[in-house]
């Protein structure tokens, strides 16, 4: 699934914006997660070998997106891993998800920068036409 996810970065002067597109909010969240990995390295270089479970909860979809990205940042930081494949289920303000990836390999991944946290800047989860967009600025 993740291979087809549509994501992009958008400019923020000091930091960088991550944006995911999808047919559903879930898919947009997965694509935003892939955009997060792309801040650090080329996601195609990451092998989805090991799966990590992630759960978060927030009062609304936008806060939930920040929580999801921050949970991934936490797993990247404490496990020293990068992730490439994501699955998200959303229900009643709760997110159940998985992220699959591998330990950072400095030579192969050439990680550009460490992500410190997802912010509420330019934060949006919305339906635009027949697609969903999930985005925010991350601090690097």
């Amino acid at each position: 699934m993740s291979e087809e996810l549509r994501w992009e970065h958008f400019s923020h002067q000091a930091d960088i914006g991550v944006r995911g597109h999808g047919r559903t909010p879930e898919e947009a969240f997965e694509a935003a997660a892939l955009a997060l990995t792309a801040v650090v390295t080329d996601p195609r270089k990451v092998l989805p070998e090991k799966r990590v479970e992630i759960a978060c909860e927030a009062p609304d979809l936008e806060l939930l997106l920040v929580d999801w990205l921050n949970a991934l940042i936490y797993e990247m930081s404490t496990r020293k891993m990068l992730f490439r494949r994501f699955e998200v289920k959303l229900e009643d303000g709760r997110l159940q998800g998985t992220a699959s990836g591998e330990p950072i390999d400095l030579q192969r991944h050439q990680p550009a920068v460490e992500v410190k946290g997802a912010t509420y800047t330019e934060l949006e989860v919305k339906q635009a036409g027949d697609e969903w967009i999930a985005q925010c600025v991350v601090d690097v």
Binding site: A58, L63, I73, Y74, S77, G117, A118, Y120
Partner: peptide, 17 residues
């Protein structure tokens, strides 16, 4: 390092909520 980033992350959310 990571400790400061996580404090920032957690309190930012609590302050928003």
């Amino acid at each position: 390092r990571g400790l400061g980033h996580q404090i920032g992350t957690e309190f930012l959310k609590r302050m928003v909520v």
